[in-house]
Every structure is written in C-alpha cells, then in structure tokens.
C-alpha cells in the first residue's frame, strides 16, 4: 500500500497554524510512510513549497497571515503540486472557491486517518500519470473509453451523450471531488454553470443505469453542496 517502496520517499507539506492538527497529520502521514514538512503560516508555507518542491500540499483554509484561497492562487501561478484543502464543516462556499481555484480535493475536519491517507493516495496517483487508461472497471461495470461503450454484468448499457460525458469526467478524476461548476462547464459549456438541475437529472438517470440501488449509490457519490465524486474505495 505505501508507496515508500520507491527510491525517494514522497514528501508532503502541511500548511496549518494549529500545532495539534499538524502533529496529528504528521503522525498519520508518517504512519502511512510519507515524509512530512510543516509550515505554520502562509508565507512560510509558500516558501517551503518553492524551495522544497513537495509532492503534495495539505493546506488549511484559515491561516493567520493570508487566506488559504490566496495561498492557493499564488501557488497555482507557478506550481501544479496537488493540494488538499482542510476545512471546517459548513463552509461550502469557501471549499467550492478553493476547488475552482485549483485545489484538487478537500477534507472536512474532524477527519478519519484512513480517509486522509486514501485522499492523499488519490492526489498522488493523478500527479503521476500512469498512462492513458482505455478501460475502467468498477463493480460489475466496465467502461471502454476507446469504443465508448459501457457494460454492466456483461450486458450493454445505453448511455446518452451527456450521461457518458458525466461518467467519463468523474472517472478521469477517480476518487476526487469534481464541483458542479466544473462538470457543467465541461459537459454543457460555459453559460450553463448555474443549471445544476441538468446535472441532478442526468446524474439520477446515470445512477439508475449504473448503480445497483440508484437511491443509495455505491460509486457515484454526492458531495453535498459541492459536487460529485466517483469512488470505488467503499
């Protein structure tokens, strides 16, 4: 499971002003086989990111000297390092803003250690492109990207163009949240960012075709108020 088998240990930078959170993250991440660096404020964090070139960054949204969102924007000017946002519950607007500004995923405090490690894994996987996947499999479903076909338990599933686009986009970001805005813009084009009902209707239809129980989806999860996430971690 831990990628420590490779030669260079994976380095993760934590930018958070709360020492206890930093310590907790360090314990959890080090147990997962990662090397950890810490920064207690935004300027130190940006500095570390530039000098040390970490493989991933865990960023708290509320920092004493600068907002997490600003840190993210400055970071994205010169770096594509994956970023995981750490935030408190109920702050959906800030999360969406951060995700739209280039963060790769988010985690709500208090978090479960296992969940944290799973998210970090997803982040790192995307950061290291493992070549184009032509076939994705989950449960009894198989998606063939080259032939644009979907089968469920061996039988063909007919998806509309939009449904297929939705499924493909989520699979491309497998394990990672995709905001409503991103989905709407990519599938329906700019100008449809507010038409969330398109998304909901198509998602409901997609689930009926793909999921075992559409009302309790196992793969196509809703991130309430934010977007959707394809997950096959369980």
């Amino acid at each position: 499971m831990p990628p420590a088998a490779s030669t260079a240990p994976v380095e993760i930078l934590i930018i958070d002003d709360e020492i206890q959170i930093r310590r907790l993250l360090r314990i959890t991440l080090e147990a997962g086989g990662y090397r950890v660096r810490e920064a207690e404020n935004a300027s130190l964090g940006l500095n570390e990111a530039a000098v040390q070139r970490p493989d991933a960054i865990i960023l708290d949204l509320s920092l004493p000297d600068m907002s997490g969102l600003d840190v993210l924007r400055r970071l994205r000017e010169w770096s594509h390092t994956p970023v995981l946002i750490l935030s408190v519950q109920g702050d959906e607007t800030a999360k969406i803003a951060a995700l739209d500004a280039g963060a790769d995923d988010y985690l709500t405090k208090p978090f479960d250690g296992g969940e944290l490690l799973a998210r970090v894994r997803v982040l790192l996987r995307r950061a290291r492109p493992a070549g184009e996947v032509s076939i994705a499999t989950f449960g009894d479903v198989q998606v063939d990207f080259t032939r644009r076909t979907v089968t469920k338990a061996g039988a063909d599933v007919h998806l509309t163009v939009k449904e297929y686009a939705l499924l493909r986009l989520l699979l491309q970001h497998r394990g990672k949240v995709v905001t409503h805005r991103q989905l709407l813009r990519d599938i329906w084009g700019p100008g449809h960012e507010e038409d969330t009902h398109y998304l909901r209707v198509h998602m409901a239809n997609l689930r009926k075709k793909i999921e075992a129980i559409a009302e309790q989806p196992a793969f196509l999860k809703t991130e309430s108020g934010i977007g959707y996430r394809f997950t096959d971690a369980g």
Binding site: E18, Q20, I21, L24, T28, V88, K109, P110, F111, D112, G113, G114, E115
Partner: peptide, 11 residues
Amino acid sequence: PLAVLGAAAET
C-alpha cells in the same frame, strides 16, 4: 481540539 480529538478517535 475537538477536531484533533475527533480525528484521533476516528482513526
């Protein structure tokens, strides 16, 4: 502190 406590407990 609750978040820390919670995260530890969850883990």
